[in-house]
Every structure is written in structure tokens, then in C-alpha cells.
């Protein structure tokens, strides 16, 4: 009973916050609404007996990603979005896509309701941090390694994208790079690493 009440409370909160995120034109209001969605979803994960994922949801999404987004909004000093005037047909396309997706959702809802019900036998070990960690470093070691490489690539990409050269600096860097190429006689390789 308590699970039911909590689920519908937080589901309503999540949907309301998501709608307010799409509705608001000020990006900061959208960001705060998105934090609300993340917190509501984290509470739903608790009702689904996944406390580790709930904690990680708060830490990574609400704690790290949204802080980064809010920093960028503050840094860029964004104004409110201009009202839509020429791309009005996007509204109809968006509405049409939304209706199709909602129809699919309700089809899933009906299809899953027709499927044979399986009684939920609470297995206490699933979702605990220990079982997740044990699986992560034995059976799913390769995906974890791949994710590590992906994060490394993201770090390098972020540094390169955020770097800014003034014009003389840029020329200096390019000339240095060309000199290095000439010395090592790799004349076939025209790529210039910036």
C-alpha cells in the first residue's frame, strides 16, 4: 500500500516536472525542473528495490551533470528563448510524433497487462551494492573497461573543445608542428594536431 502511494506520488511529480521543463523558456527554470525529475525517479528506484542506483542517480545526475549544465547556463548568460515565429510547422510535427509515441506507450501497457503475471518474490540480494559490484567486476568486466575508455575520450575531447588559442599562438603551434613533421620526414602525413 505504501509502495503504491509513493509510486503514484513520485510518478506524478516526475511527469509534472518533465512538463514544466519543456514548458519553461528560461533555461535555468528548465534545469531546476529537470533536477526535480531526477529526484523523483531516484525515489521510484527505491520503491523498485534498487538503492544503489537511486544513490548513484542523485550523485551523478543531480550532483554532477546538472551542476555542469547550470554552470554553463550561468557562464553563457543566456536570455530567454525568443518566441517561435517561423518554424511553426515544428509544433505540428512534434505533436504528431508525441501522439504516435503515446499510442505506442499504451500499446505496451495493454500488451504487458495481457502477459502472464509473475508474482514478485523479493530477492533481497538483487540491487544491493555488493551483488552489483560482484557482477560488474566478473561477468561484465569488458563493458566496464569500455566505459572507462569512453570517459577518457570524453575528458580529452572536453579539454580540446574548451581550449582557445589566440591567433599568434595558433600560428606558433602550427609552425612547431610542421617543423616537427619536417624533421622526422613524415611528409606524407598532412594532419596537424592542434
Amino acid at each position: 500500500m505504501a509502495t503504491t502511494v509513493l509510486f503514484f506520488l513520485f510518478a506524478g511529480l516526475a511527469i509534472g516536472c518533465a512538463l514544466s521543463m519543456v514548458y519553461h523558456r528560461n533555461p535555468l527554470y528548465s534545469a531546476v525542473s529537470l533536477v526535480g525529475v531526477f529526484i523523483a525517479l531516484s525515489c521510484i528506484y527505491v520503491t523498485l528495490a534498487a538503492p544503489f542506483i537511486a544513490a548513484v542517480q542523485i550523485l551523478i545526475y543531480a550532483g554532477a551533470i546538472m551542476v555542469l549544465v547550470v554552470f554553463v547556463i550561468m557562464l553563457l548568460n543566456l536570455d530567454e528563448e525568443k518566441p517561435l515565429n517561423r518554424l511553426r510547422y515544428l509544433y505540428s510535427i512534434g505533436g504528431f510524433l508525441g501522439i504516435i509515441l503515446m499510442a505506442q506507450t499504451f500499446f505496451i501497457f495493454i500488451a504487458v497487462n495481457k502477459a502472464p503475471k509473475k508474482p514478485i518474490v523479493a530477492d533481497e540480494s538483487v540491487g544491493k551494492t555488493m551483488s552489483i559490484g560482484a557482477n560488474m567486476y566478473t561477468e561484465y568486466l569488458l563493458p566496464v573497461e569500455i566505459v572507462g575508455i569512453l570517459l577518457l575520450m570524453a575528458i580529452i575531447g572536453g579539454v580540446i573543445l574548451a581550449r582557445r588559442f589566440s591567433q599568434p599562438e595558433l600560428r606558433l603551434v602550427v609552425n612547431n608542428e610542421l617543423d616537427k613533421r619536417n624533421e622526422s620526414e613524415e611528409k606524407d602525413d598532412y594532419r596537424i594536431a592542434l
Binding site: 511527469i15 518533465a18 512534434g94 508525441g98 503515446m102 506507450t105 505496451i108 501497457f109
Partner: peptide, 12 residues
């Protein structure tokens, strides 16, 4: 269903 609704809101 909740997940589908949230995904639809995001896509729109």
C-alpha cells in the same frame, strides 16, 4: 507506462 510518458515528453 511512466517511462513511455517521460520519453515522449523528452522527444517532443
Amino acid at each position: 507506462a511512466l517511462s513511455g510518458i517521460l520519453f515522449t515528453i523528452g522527444a517532443v
